[in-house]
Design a protein around this nucleic acid. Structure first.
Lengths: 507, 507
DNA sequence: ATGTTGGCCCGATGCCGACAA
DNA sequence: TTGTCGGCATCGGGCCAACAT
């Protein structure tokens, strides 16, 4: 009923165009987690206030619990008309006391139906180099992107060249000349690229996302670089830079038309909180690339974290997006104390209840308090399987945590891929910059044409997962293998591709 | 007391930069009339509603009189950050019953102190030609502008060149190369001009204003062309184009960053009206170049108009800005009926109470109803004096009505200047396009260096004034001469220049 | 495999006097 | 006096392979 209200009424009077959720997620980056439709979540007013651009006035602020159990009634994937920045409007319906404790059976179902874990369209993200962003220059297309995302090029021509059309988040079509030339040969975008860079005001460090949507159309999205922590060389906290927010306008000499990263207004927060306090449906706006923690979190995840006995001294690790937003890095730390962040306004709130000390304090100076459901408690070596979906997005989804990796080197005898930083032993003399390690790929099946013309390779990776075996097995996209197991279990949809095509064994 | 509140509090929390009132008026154009500080005015909520960009919802609209007597408590001259469009914020304090009928003695005083009638800085406006606005072209500087507004050029150099710096309404400095070359010689802006045109998105038909402010700085302002009445060849109604508002975005293929001409939001109108209804101080935003009549009008002007017995059949004339906004044209018409415009919402309102029939209906199709205080009732020949201030602005101020004219031809034996259209005898076979006539200049004193380096010539013009003698004599800038009088009376400040320099008699 | 550099071509920008209104 | 035009020089955008990493 409420669902119908949202899906019918909202599009009528609001002329906002939803965009492809796949493209939205590609632009949002690896840290963004939108809970599935109809799943149970907790809404944190405190986090919502923090998400707002300007300070919220607490005079006359409604009385409300620090966390409100809700059901996700609607999700609208949107993009800012001026900057292409993606954001979402999430409709939430507060749950009554009885409902909130029942773990929702639709959760996994919704996850599946959401298409988040289905046959994903190919996408590829690249951070712009200085040469890419230079005026007058072209764009160096990584071979993997050109071969798997772009339309097939006729290599018999000399030189091989084609025109590429790509839709942006607003549906506007951009034209590029795609050519394969030079010695050694490489893929380039030339004509049209410079115009795109200028129109979108792209700078070196911004990322561009190419995505082949389900209907075969090529899409292009933008992930603007976050404002780095003042001088932090490697890592921009993908989670919270504290007071160092406010867009990059000052730094890069942008004119005033560049908006703040987060446009959530204080009055809308108060409106949402008032409705939530009254148990009435409400809607929140969420900017996935704003550097504040998500304030709508899957209920099961929060509850799992709340069951842990958090104590000073506990060691943990936590994910952050790297500065170029191409990968996710894991940082280790120790809980220094467990205490309520803002006892005056939010007594008993779990929000940012953990005060932490980082092993590398320099890079995370502004991250002093974190949410318990965002930290992980241990690590062990294991073996797991990448589904074809993971591969298409170059992203391994381990429960909560996405895990980026680079494309495989098909030509080498022992293909490797670069993963995010594994959990280092705190006793070891780990480099302060968290050097990447390589995980070996054991089973490799080269990309093949699937039923929809989508490549569906399957891999078995011996690597270093960062979740418990139980957590991993709960995840839809990964199956844990006992160490040394040769033939992995596969999910149904992956199995189909696997069975029909066999598994090419290498080495 | 209230005045102090406005002048102290407002600048504290609002970071809006006031700009030079002279520059503001130069950009606002000849039709804009801001009542003097501390003068008594009538505020018309009905006109305010009309001024708002979007339709105002009348449900829940406060009950309020159709005209509210107020005192002008503050005036802030501002400019839009994106378009340079000027607007004003006028603080108004509603007056009690007793106060409103007392004619304010400060009116003339305020007018004087305002500086509106003092030694005005030189300014010059030019409508951009196609060549001026063409990409890659330069700007043809009218000789008068170059010689009286620009810094003095060293003509001994070959060619004479200098760099000109001009501040825009935001205080940003623009650099231009000013050169005097070609055969025949002419003044041009070359390097820097094209950039200015592009940055400001100027088009042929827009006007540019150069002004030498009191401290000697050169300023540059913009007057965007109004959207012409569909196809009307000569005149764009400077007063009301009815439904044909809404900026030129659609017509000229502008991108969405060009804003509407008038940004007044409906909610701010309602807020102002609510405060006004409660007798509390309020503030209105006024866009002088929006095509709606002013809704804050000098009380004396309104009262004078209300004393007239308006009847169908009365002939009148009314001022409009010409399409290129360089001059003011007068159009004649006949009152067809006198009836309240909107009896449901505004019974007994004088707003737009006159229904009119124009002698040239084609050009003013959308102007069906006018305010009585904007029309004039007669004309007679007379002789009057232009003060130096009038000359500097190329504008003759006759009471309510500004009167543009072209610079004098110093070289000819009988210098003339082109004035706005005089009142034609309706019985005569007047051309449908209101051809200009020339008024002869009898007394002429060439421009000389005044005490501040400002030229202060004085003229006596035999022309066709459009006000009664009494109205003219009330004006600060004009003195009426009995016909045939040789030596004009002069105001104090003009007298000084006149006496000390004598009056060069020509012919 | 791909980032960066410098060469070079070509079209656009922009300065100029001629000419005319 | 000044609007418009065509000529022409110059500049910079943009395409390219070479070379480096």
């Amino acid at each position: 009923m409420i669902d119908i209200m949202h899906s019918l009424e909202k599009p009528m009077n609001q002329l906002e165009n939803n965009l492809d959720p796949q493209l939205w997620h590609a632009c949002a980056g690896g840290m963004a987690q939108i809970p599935p439709l109809n799943s149970n979540v907790y809404y944190f007013p405190q986090g919502h206030v923090e998400h707002a651009a300007k300070n919220v006035d607490f005079r006359g602020f409604p009385r409300i619990s620090s966390l409100v159990p809700c059901r996700v009634a609607s999700i609208r994937y949107l993009a800012d008309a001026g900057t292409d920045e993606v954001y979402a409007k999430i409709g939430l319906v507060p749950l009554r006391g009885g409902e909130c404790e029942v773990d929702d059976g639709v959760e996994l179902l919704g996850f599946d139906r959401n298409g988040e874990d289905k046959e994903k369209p190919n996408s590829f993200a690249k951070t712009l180099t200085q040469s890419d962003a230079n005026n007058g220059g072209g764009f160096s297309v990584p071979r993997y992107c050109a071969e798997t995302i772009f339309p097939r090029l006729d290599y018999t021509a000399e030189p091989p060249v084609q025109t590429i059309l790509a839709k942006d988040v607003h549906g506007a079509v951009w034209k590029f000349r795609h050519i394969y030339r030079g010695t050694p040969r490489r893929h380039l975008l030339t004509t049209g690229w410079s115009n795109f860079v200028n129109q979108k005001k792209l700078l070196a460090g911004d990322s561009i996302v190419f995505l082949r949507s389900e209907n075969g159309e090529l899409c292009v999205g933008i992930r603007r670089a976050k404002l780095g922590i003042g001088g932090g060389p490697e890592v921009s906290s993908g989670w919270n830079v504290g007071a160092a927010s406010g867009g990059r306008s000052g730094l890069y000499g942008f004119s005033s038309d560049v908006k703040e990263k987060c446009n959530v207004k204080a009055e809308f927060v108060i409106e949402a909180v008032s409705l939530a306090a009254g148990g009435r449906p409400f809607e929140v706006v969420y900017y996935p690339r704003a550097s504040t923690p998500e304030f709508v979190v899957k209920a099961s995840v929060v509850r799992a974290a709340m069951r842990v006995q958090w104590c000073p001294g506990i060691r943990f690790k936590m994910a952050f997006e790297t500065e170029d937003s191409s990968r996710i890095s894991w940082f280790m730390g120790t809980i220094s104390s467990v205490q309520v962040d803002d006892p005056i306004h939010w007594p008993n709130s779990p929000w940012r209840i953990l005060q932490v000390a980082w092993d590398e304090p320099d890079l995370l100076q502004n991250v002093k308090r974190v949410n318990p459901w965002l930290v992980e408690l241990g690590a062990r070596h294991a073996q797991f399987v990448l589904s074809s979906s993971d591969l298409h997005l170059n992203k391994l989804q381990l429960g909560l945590r996405p895990f980026d990796f680079k494309p495989l080197d098909y030509g080498s005898d022992l293909p490797k891929f670069i993963t995010g930083d594994p959990l280092e032993n705190p006793n070891s003399n780990a480099s302060p910059h968290c050097p990447k390690t390589e995980s070996s790929v054991q089973h490799l099946k080269k990309p093949n044409e699937g039923k929809n013309g989508v490549n569906t390779p399957t891999f078995v990776l011996f690597g270093q997962p960062i979740l418990t075996e139980q957590q991993i097995s709960q995840s839809c996209s990964v199956n844990v293998m006992p160490e040394g197991t040769a033939s992995p279990r596969l999910r149904d949809e992956s199995k189909e591709a696997y069975d029909s095509n066999g598994c090419e064994q290498r080495q």
